[in-house]
Design a protein around this nucleic acid. Structure first.
Lengths: 650, 650
DNA sequence: CCATTTGACACCTACGTGCGAAGC
DNA sequence: TGGCTTCGCACGTAGGTGTCAAAT
């Protein structure tokens, strides 16, 4: 049914690390990144292309570098078996594409807003018996602020500093591959907000900024093992969006109204100013026509709460692949997604089955750049220029990046290699958080929510975590119990490691770890927990002086509010990484479904992919690769928080 | 605030086992049960009264007995630290009492119905840093069928066979004691149904039968360790109820309408035939006036979804302790809870503060019997007569029973000893199931739900489970993976062990265990998993010939549908048990609150208990104790399923 | 003045209630 | 017929929508 990966690209990887903003502008590294693509490789089973990863890594590391022994990391892996080959397809892809080509907007509110379309994926190729943790995050695509002008989005200046992005771990994690593959994996519990003081664990975004959701597959049977596990990251370009507090593009509004069941009240019953829009809204096919089994999507608690757009009068839209209305970089001032070119005009034309594939192909080059940029830089705006970068993407495909922190060698060339590297792959934001939010977290947050891993506090030997270990990794380890019992120690506060996870108590509980309320100044007490000294040696500095990475990151409250992404100093640590990139067919289905009233003769996107290999070759990875890697490392190692909690100034 | 246990009773315990229905009627054992009470003992910290438990145990065991080595069990304990002393108080106790004294009815529907009042408890005295699993089940009080006649409940004959009762594990399990104590623990996700083919994991009850909810505290950091852990069972007599498909007692209906927010639409707005009932409905105090913090009750996903009865015009009712309207045994034909005596007539009287305590005290003896019966026999109707039994209860207090399977000695006498024994304490039903239902389970059930532990399939040595183990107990053990991977083996089907748990995939997933769909005749494939040969040696036989316990229980599909509880043969195994009984003040608050409009001068029940020691002395345990123990063991060791799944005839 | 944000609101989807007619 | 059960229903709660006016 769904075998997304059909193209491959490989790229040499050059590890890299220390970065001193100011002295060493990020853009320098970004510009050097030049991943190369190889022709499509039919995803080998467990192909593993061995290549040294440490080249120049330690040398580049200014300090704070605690070398990671691959063997140690290996032992930390909860599941190192390579007998899986995850394939991920985006659910309701055609709906996503419809939004994307018009310039998807996502409303962010103070109280938190869901995404629509819902981010839902189908996973295949997992080891049925192995446990996986599935998570997602949303990272900034660039460092630009946008504005909607003349029915199009334009860059309106430099972006605002990004709040720490949280890793949203699917509430069902960890679960067996069997379970994940049995039904779509939905993330509708993830909510977007613009409230920087959010205490629910929602993802905090900047309005009028562009973001890219990402999906990660981690083979681990315990959330506590996340840091030592391989991350396979999947990026669906069509899920890119601009965060807004109020809809700017009326077409997006109408698309939402027509497809979101909760907005059914606004569908034209002759009241609004909107006219007969029903005809063009036949895109909801995949989103609506999900089978009974599909409705049992794997999501937190309410079994697939996201109501299905079950309006029978909507017939499936054509399955457009990679949308063209991609976003410009900060330098680009050209409008994208302007309404004039193809919206209302070709509505009926689209219905007749006219394929947009060609049109999109023409813009694929640009799309690739953007997507790679977002994938590489984790979109925190850590680069001020984008023109220097040679990005790439495979049109009508989504990108997946696999980062294996336990391998000190070049990754296997699966379907493509992305210079996205991190010792832990917990990337996507200079401040990265693992957030187990959901209804659970919201409930548990009330008694003191996030758990932060402080590498310096856990000096347990990696070997202690045996592969046959029974989970509850830290709960029974010396030094960890102290943290668990004692609430928040001043030491933990003053020198939190950049590699910290924010966990909801619920998830922690099911993992054998719990939090205790911390009677501090905050309504949301924190607790710091050591993850392992082996994982995140490098740390970003957060002082205004922008010194090189030190272990005292975030000694000041919410440092990210003081600096722009470029100003936030970063440094990455060694950690021999195993890089593996796969590509999953994202919007490669160009089938068009003419019937708009049910008689669909083409299978839904996720069920019938034409595995076209459209891989493009690019130059071998150069500095850009390094840049990407560095950003990844930085992101991963960055402390991510997101709750409005003041930290001791020192 | 809440320190429920203030009275103690101790009782000699004589293990016991094999039971052959027909040849050896259950009533014989039941009649012999004569637990004895000792005066209140202020619960010692970790007092441990050592007494041999094995007396006559093995001798009585006809066969199938696999002796359990205490040391082995001890090693299996996830948390053997005795530094806790759980105290449990029933939330909304006064509301419960209001219902109970009228004869609580709970509607059961095919699609599942919540309980109202919601079963919610506050837990205290836990080890803040230790992990606990909190669960509850609902067991039949007797083997009687009831009917509502002349505004009162009467026994209407012998009860129908009970479906296997499922252990509902709180979705947040396991969590730190810290978390459990931080907020009320609600179980509103547990639903009642009369659909014997229920596939949601709901609790299946017989209409017109009487049931008793029970609450269990287990110190364990992994659900897989449940079998080896000590169960502390708490019974709140006022939560007893009769399952109905339609309300019989109009007073109960009105009480529901007035207190359940979801039934607000039926409150007298002048439409119904019900007149001014508002005045008497001031009971909702505790249930309504919960603080903001209380609303964050620890429950599955939707943070305390149960809406609060926030009608400000209701003032707290008097805090009555143990209700009088207790249920009769099958032999008793006297009406209870008849409306004529005290309902509409004394409504206003009650409002004026007239205490019902005396009235209840008069009936306390009867109540005790009933409660003990339910606690001892787990109310599966395994005894056909109740007159023989000498039950007891401490009026206006709830009972708690602690069973420690890891101790081969008489339990510490805390506040009382109850002859409730089981090798694993997973009692309460001849068919006992651990059900992790909730929204999760419903979702995961769809791909093959229950997990059954088959002791015969796991021969791993108990020592393998080290205390420092990291959870995921079975996932990495030899012999277990086979089960996990292979779906359902015929062997597993044909000889399932009586000790099996039914787990939802979700919970299993978070515990390192998952299930795979089994392409059989059933929509809900089963998977059998060995728990440990050390735990449940004895098994109930389920054949019509009523042979003594054998390992081939439930070889026939749904055997419980063929036999009455008495016909189902049972046998218990040795397993040196540590018995400990505690008593928590349930409805011991006899304060009356006169003000019906807010001016409560008495603290809520859970905050202000007058620790009255009303322990009563009873005779030393005799055969009845054995009976109770046997039932417990049987219940625990019984295979519990509940899904309408046919088993291979052989 | 503008662009953007906020909050109350009507209108939806879910689903928890008892009712009452109909079924068995 | 008389119990008891079932089902659709109206009416709640809870919360997800975009709208619109007002605020910033």
């Amino acid at each position: 049914m769904r075998d997304p990966i059909d193209t491959a690209a490989a790229m040499a990887y050059h590890p890299f690390q220390a970065h001193r903003p100011g002295a060493l502008p990020l853009s320098a590294f970004v510009a050097a990144a030049q991943p190369s693509f190889f022709p499509a490789l039919t995803f080998p089973e467990v192909a593993s292309l061995s290549e040294p990863l440490e080249a120049g890594l330690h040398a580049a590391l200014g300090r704070q570098h605690q070398p990671v022994h691959p063997r140690s990391l290996k032992s930390l892996q909860s599941d190192e078996g390579q007998d899986d080959d995850p394939k991920v397809t985006l659910d309701s892809q055609n709906l996503w594409s419809e939004f994307h080509k018009r310039g998807t907007e996502m409303v962010i509110t103070k109280s938190g807003r869901r995404m629509f379309p819902p981010f839902k994926v189908r996973v295949d190729g997992l080891d049925e018996t192995a446990k996986y943790i599935l998570l997602m995050d949303i990272v900034a695509v660039d460092d630009c602020r946008y504005k909607f002008h003349n029915s199009g989005w334009t860059v309106a200046g430099k972006g605002d500093p990004e709040m720490p992005k949280r890793m949203y771990i699917h509430p069902d994690s960890p679960s067996k591959g069997e379970q994940w593959m049995s039904k779509p994996v939905a993330f509708h519990k993830l909510k977007l907000t613009n409230n920087i003081s959010d205490k629910h664990g929602f993802t905090i975004l900047n309005s009028m900024h562009k973001y890219q959701p990402r999906f990660h597959v981690v083979r681990a049977n315990d959330i506590m093992k996340l840091p030592y596990s391989t991350f396979r990251t999947y990026v669906f370009p069509e899920t890119e969006f601009i965060a807004v507090t109020a809809y700017q593009n009326e077409k997006i509004t109408q698309l939402k109204i027509d497809n979101n069941p909760f907005a059914k009240g606004f569908r034209d019953t002759g009241n609004g100013k909107r006219e007969k829009r029903n005809k063009q809204l036949n895109i909801s096919s995949l989103h609506e026509n999900r089978s009974k089994a599909d409705q049992d999507c794997a999501d937190s608690d309410d079994s697939c709460e996201q109501p299905s757009t079950s309006d029978p009068l909507y017939s499936p839209w054509e399955l457009v692949s990679s949308p063209l209305m991609s976003t410009p970089t900060c330098q680009d001032e050209n409008n994208i997604g302007s309404d004039s070119d193809d919206d209302l005009q070709d509505e009926d034309a689209a219905e007749t089955g006219s394929s947009r594939t060609e049109h999109m192909s023409a813009l694929s080059q640009k799309s690739e750049e953007i997507l790679w940029k977002s994938a590489l830089t984790m979109s925190n705006g850590n680069q001020d220029t984008t023109k220097d970068r040679t990005m790439f993407r495979m049109s009508d495909d989504m990108y997946s990046v696999e980062v294996d922190s336990s391998k000190n060698q070049m990754s296997e060339i699966k379907d493509g290699v992305l210079p996205l590297v991190s010792s832990l792959s917990l990337s996507a934001g200079h401040l990265q958080t693992l957030d187990f939010s959901s209804a659970h977290s919201q409930q548990f947050l009330k008694l003191g929510a996030p758990l932060l891993f402080n590498p310096g506090q856990l000096s347990v030997k990696p070997e202690a975590f045996s592969t046959t270990g029974m989970g509850h990794l830290f709960s029974s380890l010396p030094g960890v119990n102290n943290l668990e019992n004692g609430g928040l120690s001043s030491q933990s506060i003053t020198s939190p490691s950049p590699f910290m996870f924010q966990l909801s108590q619920h998830m922690l509980a099911s993992q054998g770890i719990s939090l205790s309320p911390f009677g501090g100044l905050l309504s949301y007490p924190y607790r710091y927990m050591a993850a392992s000294a082996a994982i995140a040696p490098a740390l970003p500095t957060c002082s205004a002086t922008s010194t090189l990475a030190s272990n005292h990151c975030f000694r000041s409250p919410r440092p990210w509010l003081r600096f722009s992404p470029y100003q936030i100093p970063n440094s990455v640590t060694s950690s021999q990484n195993h890089l593996r990139t796969t590509r999953s067919p994202g919007s490669s289905n160009s089938q068009s479904e003419l019937s708009k009233s049910g008689s669909r003769n083409s299978s839904p996107v996720s069920d019938n992919h034409s595995h076209k290999s459209k891989a493009k070759q690019k130059s071998a990875p150069s500095r850009n690769t390094v840049k990407g890697s560095m950003n990844e490392l930085q992101n991963i190692h960055n402390l991510v928080r997101g709750l409005d909690r003041p930290l001791p100034p020192q």
